[in-house]
Every structure is written in C-alpha cells, then in structure tokens.
Computed example of a mutant assay.
Amino acid sequence: MDTIITIQGDTWDTIARRAYGDERAAQALMEARENIRLLDYQIFPGGVHVAAPALPEETQQDSGLPEWRR
C-alpha cells in the first residue's frame, strides 16, 4: 500500500489522480479503512498522510472507454 502526502489544497480527486492516474478512483480512496478518519476533509491541508491501497480489479478496468481514453 502506498501513502500519498497531501499538498495544501488537495481534494480527494486530486489525490486519486496522483495515486492512480484517474480521479474517478477517489471513491476507492475514501472507502479505504485507513482513510476513515480523513472523511471530514473536503480540502486537505498540507502534510496529511493518505493511504492509497491497490484498486479492486473491477475499478481498474473501464470497459466503456476505448484503450486510448483509459
């Protein structure tokens, strides 16, 4: 499991983009057990450690998009 250290002004989707390359993975970040204590944040201060667990297989595949859009 990776850990992302926030930069002031980060949001869940910007953290997901940095961790996974896709802001649509923000839900997976928020559902991670290690991040439950962080759910009150909408905009993060700098220096907060956010756990970035491996994505479930169904989250990694986007069958509705062509290869070049993934």
Rank of each mutant, 00 (worst) to 15 (best):
residue 2 D to G: 05
residue 2 D to F: 04
residue 2 D to C: 02
residue 2 D to K: 13
residue 3 T to W: 01
residue 3 T to L: 05
residue 3 T to N: 09
residue 3 T to F: 07
residue 4 I to Y: 15
residue 5 I to Q: 12
residue 6 T to S: 01
residue 7 I to Q: 14
residue 7 I to S: 05
residue 8 Q to G: 07
residue 8 Q to Y: 01
residue 8 Q to R: 14
residue 8 Q to N: 12
residue 9 G to R: 05
residue 9 G to E: 08
residue 9 G to Q: 07
residue 9 G to V: 01
residue 10 D to E: 10
residue 10 D to M: 00
residue 10 D to N: 14
residue 10 D to I: 03
residue 11 T to Y: 01
residue 11 T to A: 00
residue 12 W to N: 00
residue 12 W to Q: 05
residue 12 W to V: 01
residue 12 W to K: 05
residue 13 D to N: 02
residue 13 D to V: 12
residue 13 D to M: 08
residue 13 D to K: 13
residue 14 T to E: 04
residue 14 T to S: 15
residue 14 T to Y: 12
residue 15 I to Q: 03
residue 15 I to P: 01
residue 15 I to Y: 07
residue 15 I to A: 00
residue 16 A to N: 00
residue 16 A to C: 08
residue 18 R to S: 13
residue 18 R to H: 10
residue 18 R to F: 11
residue 19 A to H: 00
residue 19 A to E: 11
residue 20 Y to S: 02
residue 20 Y to F: 15
residue 20 Y to H: 06
residue 20 Y to Q: 12
residue 21 G to C: 07
residue 21 G to T: 10
residue 22 D to F: 11
residue 22 D to Y: 11
residue 24 R to K: 12
residue 24 R to P: 00
residue 25 A to L: 09
residue 25 A to Q: 09
residue 25 A to E: 09
residue 26 A to T: 01
residue 26 A to M: 06
residue 27 Q to K: 08
residue 29 L to I: 04
residue 29 L to P: 05
residue 30 M to C: 09
residue 31 E to K: 11
residue 31 E to D: 14
residue 32 A to M: 06
residue 33 R to K: 14
residue 33 R to C: 02
residue 33 R to S: 12
residue 37 R to K: 12
residue 38 L to M: 07
residue 38 L to R: 02
residue 38 L to F: 00
residue 39 L to C: 09
residue 39 L to Q: 13
residue 40 D to S: 11
residue 40 D to E: 11
residue 40 D to G: 15
residue 40 D to H: 10
residue 41 Y to W: 10
residue 42 Q to R: 10
residue 43 I to Y: 00
residue 44 F to T: 05
residue 44 F to M: 10
residue 45 P to M: 03
residue 46 G to W: 07
residue 47 G to C: 04
residue 47 G to T: 12
residue 47 G to M: 07
residue 48 V to M: 08
residue 48 V to T: 06
residue 48 V to D: 06
residue 48 V to F: 04
residue 48 V to K: 02
residue 49 H to R: 14
residue 49 H to M: 11
residue 50 V to E: 02
residue 51 A to G: 09
residue 52 A to I: 02
residue 53 P to Q: 06
residue 53 P to T: 05
residue 54 A to D: 15
residue 54 A to F: 06
residue 55 L to Q: 02
residue 55 L to D: 02
residue 56 P to N: 05
residue 57 E to L: 12
residue 57 E to M: 07
residue 58 E to W: 13
residue 58 E to L: 11
residue 59 T to R: 11
residue 60 Q to Y: 06
residue 61 Q to A: 10
residue 62 D to C: 11
residue 63 S to H: 12
residue 63 S to D: 09
residue 64 G to Q: 11
residue 65 L to V: 12
residue 65 L to C: 13
residue 65 L to H: 13
residue 67 E to A: 13
residue 68 W to Q: 09
residue 68 W to P: 00
residue 69 R to A: 14
residue 70 R to E: 04
residue 70 R to N: 10
